[in-house]
Design a protein around this nucleic acid. Structure first.
Lengths: 183, 183
DNA sequence: TATAACATGTAACTAGTTACATGATTGG
DNA sequence: CCAATCATGTAACTAGTTACATGTTATA
């Protein structure tokens, strides 16, 4: 599926692998992330399949860049993916929940430490969605073509992130309180 | 990490691969799932590492069973994992959000269809967390040793599931309304 | 009469992570 | 002077999925 994340970004404008990584980190990271190594190998595969093309831009002070552009076949593939509705729910893997599920086998203090640490991490993330993310969306919306349309959907994913983190923080607070009472 | 899901269950009592799969499906599926094929290969690997042991129980009418038991080394490994706190947040991959992020490149009706379908799926799941899951937790709590302690944590993961699905349903409703107004 | 549940496993494949390898420039 | 940013890639590995292979019994 990284395939479609890459095709989606390349449908906005040409990018290098490094650029794509940077963009994913600030915009899709909370629902889709990838390491640079996987991005490079996937781009190579997409080029072999004819969904993207690349050309080298030479640079003097920096390493040369390989700039990828989406092809008509790539656009068709992306369109087909967008048009075809998912018939099942996304399945997630949450290590934290797995640890909580078996926490009765360890000691109470360890769980409390873990949950408090997680709470502070999720609070930080919640703040980001409320302060930094709206600014990023505003900027990018003005830079790209069809910015207003994309802006609506980008804001929708931001709202999801915010609501998710709020829910997690609330759940952690409740769970911590419950555990403290169990003393 | 499937490793720890399996060790966790086997720390409650011995199980076959088939049993483990069935238990995961009703209790951890929303935060940890695995196919039978992966469960079988992982159990084999765990046995080679000395973390579990198995013995065959012959059956006449059914295929023979291979019953796995956790070893002291397995228990130690599980304990160490539980005691060591995670220092980062779980990262998720949500195809639905990825599709929404790039939805401005497709047509509005496709997105609406997709979101409405997802809403009905998540509503169904929310109902399950409110009706079926509490009953399952009650039953299992009474069957296993230290049931009351485990019950607290199992209920915590149920609450997470319920809160998550409620949040998703609300987000979908809002997003659908926003899109309909955009007409 | 067909399909779900019971029961285990292997083989081939796709996806993703970690580590390695290289090397200049900029900022603290 | 050290870390971060820029920039690309390969190799080895771990995790997870899909498909294949087998065979009985209970249920709708």
């Amino acid at each position: 599926m990284l395939k479609y994340a890459l095709l989606g970004f390349l449908n906005l404008q040409p990018y290098t692998g490094y650029d794509l990584s940077a963009h994913m980190e600030v915009s899709t990271a909370h629902f889709w992330h990838a390491k640079l190594s996987q991005i490079y190998t996937t781009l190579k595969k997409l080029e072999q399949e004819g969904l993207v093309e690349s050309e080298i831009e030479e640079q003097d002070d920096r390493p040369d860049k390989r700039i990828y552009t989406i092809t008509p076949a790539g656009r068709d593939d992306l369109q087909a993916w967008l048009a075809q509705p998912m018939t099942d729910m996304d399945q997630t893997k949450l290590k934290l929940l797995l640890k909580v599920f078996f926490a009765g086998m360890g000691d109470r203090e360890s769980v409390l430490t873990e949950l408090r640490l997680q709470k502070s991490l999720h609070e930080k993330q919640l703040t980001l969605y409320r302060t930094a993310t709206p600014q990023i969306i505003d900027e990018v919306t003005q830079e790209v073509a069809d910015g207003e349309v994309h802006g609506f959907y980008w804001e929708a994913t931001r709202r999801f992130g915010e609501a998710y983190e709020q829910m997690v923080v609330d759940w952690l607070a409740e769970t911590i309180t419950g555990l403290e009472k169990m003393a």
